[in-house]
Write a protein that binds this DNA or RNA. Structure first.
Lengths: 114, 114
DNA sequence: TTTTATCGTTTCGGAGCCGTTTCATTCTGG
DNA sequence: CCAGAATGAAACGGCTCCGAAACGATAAAA
């Protein structure tokens, strides 16, 4: 349960992954965007704008705009909640799954090299 | 040599650390800025603007501006190279050391919880 | 039904980051 | 000594992000 990571190796891993993200062709996601994306994929639905804003500790417009950006990239999608049409439900996409699979592979591979 | 990290744990770790960065009071650093900061602290000096730009795969003005931003935060500092006054040498600061120590502690602690 | 509350979006003004191009300073080789 | 190369910074235009406040749509309460 849990992985032991010395301070030096933690920094090296953080450096290597970020460097990989910079050098890659993938579009750059902000810290808030990647955290939002991971939250939707790691936690159980449903995900509303309000809930996501609270979980991330940011304002609702930040979520709305991040959903705009991530939606354009097909990494997430929105749907109206028919049970309560005030709500918007945030859902996963195939491209989002593939994106995070690549990210997980990268982190895992670089951790092994540390 | 190296740490084994399953895909699920890699994503959870990436999520947790980014969430911690968002929620913290620390000023948000861009991916390029944090990578630059880590490069200076992990690799041996001297560090010139040109070398750092090449290592990160970005243009020189990106480095110049990142140094402006990180300099305002006292995380890095500039000094003229007296041997070749065209060069600027990027150097570490006490605040930068402390900042990265905190980051390393955070990554290590959250990795243990994964 | 009418009023109140909730939800997500839009608007507004401000700030930061980006790449390209241009520039001043400094060094180097003929 | 002087023309050319190298270095980092500044200027320019474009894009994105941010929080606060105002807004319409929907639901719940009175």
């Amino acid at each position: 349960m849990g992985v032991t990571l010395s301070p030096a190796k933690a920094l090296q891993l953080w450096h290597d992954v970020n460097l990989h993200l910079i050098r890659g062709d993938e579009p750059d996601l902000s810290t808030r965007q990647i955290t939002l994306l991971l939250t939707v994929y790691l936690e159980a639905p449903p995900h509303t704008v309000r809930d996501l804003a609270a979980k991330l500790g940011v304002s609702k417009p930040v979520i709305t705009r991040a959903l705009d950006s991530l939606g354009k990239l097909d990494l997430l999608t929105r749907r109206r909640d028919e049970a309560d049409r005030r709500n918007v439900l945030v859902q996963r996409t195939v491209k989002g799954v593939l994106y995070l699979e690549r990210l997980a592979e990268t982190v895992g591979r670089l951790a092994k090299q540390v």
